[in-house]
Amino acid sequence: MENIFHKIINIEAAMEHFYDGMTIMFGGFGGIGTPPTIIDGILEKGIKDLTLIGNDSGFPHIGIGKVVSRGKAKKMIASHIGSNPIAGQLMTDGKMKVEFSPQGILAERIRAGGAGIPAILSDIGMDNDIVTGDKQRCILNGKEYLVETALTAEISIVFAKKADPYGNLIYDKSARNTNPLVAMAGDMTIAEVEEIVPLGSLEPDEIITPGVFIDYIVPSKGVNWKWAWE
């Protein structure tokens, strides 16, 4: 029976998979739904030169913003950074490159990455140099589109309300946001969870992210998960 719990690890074991220069995709919207224990672990390990992919740059002291504000990211792919003035300053000073993507397109690029689709076509932002940048264009049925490449990461980090030992996840209301898409788009996905419940406790139709997408489960700070061996 013990082998069914191999996905449950502590934060120290999770941090062994993180290193300088890697790409990390994160769930969350303004910090809500971004895994706090994993973020703190990243800061404690002190890794740097990261490429971060997610909805936004959080706030200076909330969510992924804690990583950005300490200058640990060399690049960010996001829909906006306006909630974190430090991110804006880093971009202005040339210390962090930012690739902006409209929020819906960003979500679709992440979804495409998780589904194994190399790119999507979109006409959103065709007249905006910030959106178009140096992106490829193509003609389909006589209409011009931007080629929006799919997004993946070496590690995806997500935050969930509940998990069973297989990694089936349930999210808490709006904290669900981009987490289900992000969970699918990582070469490895680590889920921080608030509660770990026994196998069979979750109703199949309430599971949002199937455990097949989750490699490891990290109990959030203060979570007691020793029941699994009792």
Rank of each mutant, 00 (worst) to 15 (best):
E44F: 02
K45Y: 06
I47M: 01
T51Y: 04
I53L: 04
I53F: 01
I53W: 02
G54A: 02
N55E: 12
S57K: 11
F59Q: 13
F59I: 12
F59C: 08
P60T: 09
P60Y: 11
P60H: 07
H61S: 15
I62T: 14
G63T: 08
I64C: 02
G65N: 11
K66C: 09
V67H: 03
V67I: 15
V68D: 11
V68F: 04
S69G: 03
S69K: 10
R70A: 06
G71P: 02
K74A: 10
K74D: 09
K75M: 13
I77S: 02
I77Q: 00
S79N: 09
S79P: 02
H80E: 13
H80C: 03
I81Y: 06
G82A: 13
P85F: 11
I86G: 07
G88W: 03
G88R: 13
G88V: 07
Q89V: 11
T92L: 11
T92H: 13
G94I: 00
K95P: 04
K95L: 13
K97D: 14
K97I: 14
E99F: 09
F100C: 01
S101C: 10
S101G: 00
P102D: 05
G104V: 12
A107M: 14
A107S: 14
E108I: 02
E108L: 15
E108Y: 04
A112G: 07
G116F: 08
G116L: 04
P118N: 10
G125M: 01
M126C: 03
I130F: 10
V131H: 04
V131N: 05
T132K: 12
G133D: 04
G133S: 11
K135P: 02
Q136V: 02
Q136E: 15
R137F: 06
C138R: 12
L140A: 14
G142H: 04
G142S: 05
G142D: 06
K143N: 11
E144Y: 01
Y145C: 04
V147S: 05
A150Y: 11
L151M: 13
A153I: 02
I155L: 06
I155N: 07
S156G: 13
S156P: 06
V158H: 05
V158L: 03
F159C: 07
A160I: 09
A160S: 15
K161P: 00
D164W: 11
P165M: 09
G167I: 07
I170M: 11
I170C: 06
D172G: 11
D172N: 13
K173I: 05
S174M: 15
